[in-house]
Design a protein around this nucleic acid. Structure first.
Lengths: 346, 346
DNA sequence: ATTGCATTTGTAATCGATTACATATAGCGT
DNA sequence: ACGCTATATGTAATCGATTACAAATGCAAT
């Protein structure tokens, strides 16, 4: 940390034989400076090995050069692709990412609060729709509004702009697929019931079942939490049932995998005795046994889009909530975890 | 972004009836200020809703309050647990994370260079051992040394401190397990041959085979790259062999999963016809079919340790390379992907 | 030659906190 | 009462860039 001899703007100015103002302009607004001086400054900067001091620039510009990303759980691989997309776009725009794991930091809301403040970040991307409203409120006070956009999840009570997958369409595709295979008794394993994704996928599932004129049996609807363990629990309940559904749609792939694995332990075969559809199309889905029929969603693209949306908001000096929410298309990936009901052979 | 009315330290000072110096001290070194004034300042800060301006503090302190984390590939879930550990520790110390995906930014080494500079970060954590030496060199110049620590991977030619798993022990445990089950013909699917982890795991694998007096047949050693696709390729080559190994150790779980899945497609059963051991114990390992025998490594702990190591380096004003490298213990997790050779029944 | 305008560059204030140094006050021993 | 130390607080310089404003320069038109 002994960088006291690091070249500063005055050093470059001296070498180039110009003032610091000119150096600053040559570097950040090259078109406002004569070609010859610009070249002299660039040469001097290269010669001295000058690197801008980010803190100083930020202080003067009243910016931070960083964007906060609130992730529900960094340990969950589902988010890594989205993060990769966000990172790709933001780094291109010269913005850096401040990652905050809301699960880890969850015990201290004021800690998250701290990050939401404008002095920490030029903007905020929230991937966790379950954050309490009042936490986000702080960033809405006109005195210190920071552009905020939701990715993947969103907040039901507030009208922040967001980029998300077409969850309704996903649920519809999943149910229609099971119906086309001939299933009559279809159930659903939900995510946490407080979660927006859960709610929408659940509602769309029921709507699709109704549209197909299939029974909606509440016993076949399981509460879950997006973990493999939720799938395991559902498997045990399914085994105990007298009248079992023959097709199950899962709120995400993790749940589907936990379900299949536990059923396998108990000697039940998928898809012969039960057809299963997941959601997300995580990398493992096509290498699971059986390969997993699931709903693909463009996670990388989603990350890029939400970052792009935020960048525009920052540059315009505010993201107005009337910005259209972007809904990205999803696709059904048919693999081997689904089959016609009771197809013991295959 | 219209925060021009945001309270600053002078506002707090006015309300509390003290000088800005006292406010600053009351906030950052409370013990140097009389109890009564401290309380007055705290009250004034609360009343005005004061938030420190990070850029200003950083400028004056000649710090950045951030740590750069270079991740080989954010899209790879393997790193998410490590990141979670890093995040947990750094956020506790008031440091924020600048994430850089070296895969995404890889096309522009000067871009990564930029981040390594002291003006961007107080320290650097590198999870990618394959970064070119000369890139890291820049942070070694005495003029602008930034503490740097490696996590998980490390750099063979430089003596930076690092925290890593006991890869040798992992390979030994895997091979010994296969040997104990009675396997005579044992092979290994490696990671990228340029990767340090690959090299060490390969060397340790061969050493363990030699110690057990088992044959080392080069045909049974596969080149890979840590992806599921590498496992798929290995499966195809295995199928083509006249003399096949009956046990395979894989450089990571992804490879093992790709391998098992492809073999399954071709009607080969694991572990009946081939025993497989993975490395990492990713979440999916215990829910795969069959559940995966693998080497567990403490990823969360690893992240925490490397962050802790770096924080100490930052506070001491430099991390000296003679700091002992930390090697974390690994464990063999025996599950269902391994069995005695030719156990068609089981 | 003079004026006016556009372009380019320089001077100095500014962003908001930290901290070296100076000063004030209190407590204590003699 | 005096000097001495310890504690608490204030004054003002400082971190390193940006940018409002002023000034200089060049060129064309009159």
């Amino acid at each position: 940390m002994e960088q006291e001899n690091a070249p500063k703007i005055v050093d470059v100015a001296r070498v180039a034989g110009v003032s610091t103002a000119t150096v600053s302009r040559a570097l950040s607004k090259p078109e406002t400076v004569a070609k010859s001086t610009r070249e002299a400054v660039l040469a001097a900067a290269a010669q001295t090995g000058y690197r801008i001091n980010v803190a100083a620039r930020n202080l003067r510009r009243r910016r931070t050069g960083a964007v906060v990303v609130l992730v529900p759980n960094l340990g969950n691989p589902f988010f890594s692709q989205i993060l990769a997309g966000i990172e790709a776009t933001l780094s291109k725009k010269g913005l850096s990412i401040l990652m905050v794991d809301t699960m880890q930091s969850g015990t201290r809301p004021d800690f998250i609060q701290e990050y939401l403040h404008h002095t920490r970040a030029d903007g905020v991307i929230v991937l966790d729709g379950s954050l309490p409203s009042d936490l986000l409120q702080s960033s809405r006070q006109s005195s210190n509004r920071v552009p905020l956009a939701f990715g993947c999840e969103w907040h039901p009570d507030e009208d922040y702009p967001s980029v998300r997958a077409d969850n309704e369409q996903g649920a519809r595709l999943a149910i229609e697929h099971l119906v086309e295979l001939g299933h009559e008794k279809i159930g659903y394993i939900n995510g946490p019931h407080a979660n927006v994704l859960s709610k929408h996928r659940l509602a769309a599932t029921k709507a699709a079942l109704a549209a197909a004129e299939k029974p909606i049996n509440e016993e076949w609807f399981f509460e879950g939490d997006f973990t493999m363990q939720a799938g395991v629990r559902a498997a045990r309940r399914w085994l105990d049932m007298k009248e079992r559904p023959t097709g199950l749609f899962c709120a995400n792939d993790e749940t589907a995998i936990g379900l299949i694995s536990e059923l396998h332990q108990c000697g039940i075969n998928v898809p012969d005795q039960l057809s299963i559809v997941g959601f997300d199309d995580v990398d493992i889905a096509q290498h699971y046994i059986p390969t997993l029929t699931t709903i693909w969603q463009p996670r990388l693209e989603l990350g890029k889009r939400v970052a792009q949306m935020l960048v525009e908001g920052i540059n315009q000096g505010g993201l107005n909530p009337s910005d259209p929410t972007q809904i990205l298309p999803v696709k059904l990936r048919v693999r081997n975890s689904t089959a016609p009901p009771g197809s013991a052979g295959r």
